[in-house]
Structure formats: structure tokens, C-alpha cells
Design a protein around this nucleic acid. Sequence first.
RNA 1: GGAGAGAUGCCUGAGAGGCCGAAAGGAUCAGUUUGCUAAACUGACGUACUGGCAACGGUACCGAGGGUUCGAAUCCCUCUCUCUCCGCCA
Length: 423
Amino acid sequence: MLQVSYIRENKEKVLERLAIRNFKQPELVEQIINLDEDRRATQSELDLISAEANAAAREIGDLMRQGLKERAEHIKSQNTGHKQKIKELGDKLSAIETLLQSELLLLPNLPHDSVPEGVTPEENITVLEHGNIPQLPAHALPHWELATKYDIIDFELGNKIAGAGFPVYKGKGARLQRALINFFLDHANESGYREIQPPIVVNEASGFGTGQLPDKEGQMYHIGIDNLYLIPTAEVPVTNLYRDVIVKEDELPIKNCAYTPCFRREAGSYGAHVRGLNRLHQFDKVEIVQITHPDNSYETLENMSLYVQSLLKKLDLPYRVLSLCGGDMSFTSAKTYDMEVWCAAQARWLEVSSVSNFETYQSNRLKLRYKSKDGKPQLAHTLNGSALALPRIVASLLENNQTEKGIRIPEALIPYTGFEIID
RNA sequence: GGAGAGAUGCCUGAGAGGCCGAAAGGAUCAGUUUGCUAAACUGACGUACUGGCAACGGUACCGAGGGUUCGAAUCCCUCUCUCUCCGCCA
């Protein structure tokens, strides 16, 4: 959520930045500024009357204590209108605030100056490509056929147990999952991320804190009886650890990571592009989350990008890095890099990570601040990234590394799997 | 699922209609002092909105929302959450 004071003082800049992301309702900015003015006027009026009422009450109290009951009664009779007025103004104020709040929620984050203009994914900028596109044998198979061939992932069985999008991993398939999780966690730990094991259900307040609620309500599984949501990403619980928190400046940066299963309803998805592991309702992911000083967040974003790339290099996966254009970035992001891995048999790039700087957009909602030794509390910057999401990594490992003898496991992963080939 | 207790500042915890934005202790920060570690003493020490160049003011906030009252952290109602005991269970 953007800060009203910032919008008020930088109206032109806000409009210009929103245009970069092709935002369709620029009139909201004007409305918000007007509402804010209204809010402040009402607030002052209310403050003034409250001050009068407080003064009168104090005087009555003093008089009562002195036993001057008559004079007290006199003042009482003179101040009968306050209560009514305070109530009216209070109601008016909260109505304005509710409206203001709901309009603020409709404004996306402002893209950073370095974010490319554009509307569609085609306008994303390829920052770099790394690795060689593998040459596959004549009868190369897509991963969902390989999964069946080697009996490592069973989509049918998942259908029976839960439904489409809930695969069952078996044997070496299951061990590969576990290996990847440990591989990712170990590397995150080595890079200074503290490991967190959070709840995988969250309450409403947490959903609001990171912005999944109210807009993405339909994308989360909701446990009605207890009013809890299955997390769509570890970002939600791990970032919400710092909701309503003021940290000390010298504690920054805060680096946390977590492995969790992630649950997404993916309502409305269908078609060939979501076959196999490409898009699931439940998947595993290691997430990295940082809270930084505003001065450092873009440097941190670059470092997080490099960190994710280092994982892909270790796994020998050809990848490219995209800088998302304004129109393709998520609502809450100020700048996002997507990492895509080449899936050889499908012959397409698949997104395996998304690294974003949210600047103060999340922290404003979370009320996540830092305090310098002398200064006032300031909003911190939050960043996160997948490091990494498993299914598409598995898909590309299967497709890219298929040989006559079986699926070759990359060198760096063998200590984790305990086997060199899936056959 | 049954019964009970509770929710106050960074933490512990007092406060039971006005003198309460809130005692006291701890933590933290600044200073004084002692040779170091440490201790003692002094001072500072919530957040948000808002007025003002500033000094300094105003308002709100004691889990949330309502109510009673001239006046509510304190009384009443509703809700949420936490804890304890019993039951069930990994």
C-alpha cells in the first residue's frame, strides 16, 4: 500500500510511474488526495471539539472535588452539545477513512525508474542468458511421460487421493524432492539466511499483511471452519513475522528463508501449458525473504538475483533472467526479476523464480519499521524470491538430462539424492 | 468438545470512574564516577494523525467494536485471541 503522504506530495510522479505499469484508473490518485484533504479537515474539526469537551470535563471534575456542585452543574448544562457532535464527526471521519483505505488498496506499487515500460510479457527485457541449450536424443519425452516411464511421479494417483494438480511422488521421485529441498536450504543457510519453519496456514490478518487479501482471496484455499488460509507461498508467514514490529536499524538486513509446501487454487487455469508439473495446486518451494534499509534494497535485489542464479548454475540448468516490464509485474512489486529455465522437450522457458523488491509497499501494510538511534521510525523495505520452486526445476531436470540409460542427476545434487541416475 | 482465568508501553507488572499516556522494576540509549570485566548514580525513553519555521501545542490509542457518563484503561454488552485444567489425539 502506498503512503498517502507520499501521494499527496508527489502527485505528478505517482501518475507518471503508474502509467509505466499501464494502470487503468489514474483518477484514483486525485480521489485519494481529495479524500485525504477531507479526512484532515474532519480530523481537525473533531480534535477541536474534543479539546473543548475535555476541558469542560476537567473543569467539572475540579469543581466537584472542591464541592462546588452548583457551578459544576452550570458548566455541564452549557456543554450538552459536544457529545452529539463528536459522535457525528467521528462517524464521518471513520467513513472517510474506510473509503480512503479501500481506494488505497486499489493502487498498485510504483515501478522503480529502471523498470521497462510495457504491457505484455513480450515486452519484458531479457537481462542475460546462461548455459547451453541441450541437444536431446531423437525420441525425447516431455517430463510427464518421463515421470510415468520411470514411475517417479504419479498424476493419476494424485487425482484419486485429492484431485488434479496434486501429484504423488514415488521412490526416486520423492527422494529427488527431498534432495532439492535440502540442497536449497543448505545453500540459503550458507548465504546467511536463517531457516524458519512457519505454519503453513495463516489467519486473515496475515493474508492482508502481505497483500493476498483482499484481492487474491479466490486463489487461496480457505478453511472455513477455522477461518484459516493455506499459504500460497512462505512469503506470507515469513514476512508476517515482522507485522507490527519496529526493529533496530543495526539489525538490518534481516535474512530469512523457509521451505514450505505451497497451495494455489489456480482458478481458471487450463490447457496444454499447465500439463504435468507446469502448474500445480500443491508444490514445494524454498523462499528467501529480506528486510532491508531503504538505501540498500536495490543492491540487495541484485544480490538475491545472483544468488538464485548461482543455484541454477550448480544444477547445470540453462536459464535466462528477465526484468519484468511495468504491465507484467505483480501488483505489489516495485521491481521484479524472473528466472526462467529452459525445458528442452517442451522447448520452452519455464519460470522457476521471481525475485522482487516491494520497497515500502508491504511494510506500510505490515507496519514494519526500523528505528535509528536518534531518528523516528521509518518503513523498511521488503524483498523476496523463490530459491527455488521445485516442480519446474524437476520438469527441466527430467527433460534436459534424459539419456538412453535414464535421467542423469547433476553433480551438485548427487550427495543429496544418493543416486546418480533415475532408471 | 467441557470448565475456568486473562489481554495494559520493548518486557515483567501496578492501576478498579476525574490528579492516568498510564506507577515500579527490567531492557535500551546518553552522561558521571571507579584501573579492566562489572557495578553505582543521573537523565532520556510509546505510536499515529494533526497545527507550527521552530520552541511548543491539539487529538486518538490500555485486545477489537459498541454502550453508560459532563468525564472510562477502570462500569455494562458483543466479538476475537491467549493461557490453565479435563476429554480426545500425534
